[in-house]
Amino acid sequence: MEPIIQVSNVWFKYPGEDPSVEYFVLRDINLSIGIGEYVAIIGPNGSGKSTLARMFNGLLLPNQGEIKIAGLATTTLENLWDIRKTVGMVFQNPDNQIVATTVRDDVAFGLENLGVPRSEMQKRISRALEAVGLSGMEESAPHYLSGGQKQRLSIAGILAMQPKVVVFDEATSMLDPQGRKEVLNLIASLHQSGTTVVHITHSAEEAFLAKRILVIAKGQIQLDLPRDELYKQSINLEKWGLEVPLPVQLHQRLIKRGIPLTDHVKSTEDLVMQIWKLLSKT
């Protein structure tokens, strides 16, 4: 099946920067994401992960190479509106993506832009608000919502446009733990309903909720692995300034001290079992 997102040999630098290689934010990125996948892109600040995300719906265009969304190249101007309809995007700051003075009007904004007829609009708005758990708050002013609610409102605005892909561009990084949980739960349920999800984050903990994880650093994809594979190799995350899951840290430390554990642990349970077996030898 044709991938929904196809990135081929993409190079990018911001205008005005030196044209030498080291100023490129993205260097020769190749990537394809299939329909229904749940992918996390993880990397330290300044690694180019948000830049890459913004290329998925043509907010930024590559200097070299090509990005195709459902077969449509982002560089062709006529495709742009279809592409933005296909790929919805939730940004970092919950305050700076709400346009209207009521919840209902904000969800309507995208639909109005698409020219959706009014009767259809009303149906889609109530469905989207239900999906994010904001039914009954239609008349509320965005200012009175919590951070998590604001982000859910933004997600409703995207869902109403019925995209095939939703990209979360560090959408949880400004939220408190409560708001973060709300959004992460919503991401999981979106994935379950068949939407393709791309989650950009610098939290390893959040990344490990996805099925496939891409590590990006210094403008290049360093690792691209299914979750379980990455878990085994996650001691390498430290190299890129990212956090290593605690069980993996402990495992590595114990091995270094000469404790006979297997080379890789598959999960926390695995580690616990191994330590327990050693201790109960007596």
């Binding site: 907010l59 509106w81 919805g88 700076n96 993506q97 346009v99 933004s154």
Partner: peptide, 12 residues
Amino acid sequence: DLALAMEARCYR
């Protein structure tokens, strides 16, 4: 930020 978000939501 807002301009970017509006553009991403097909505002033209």
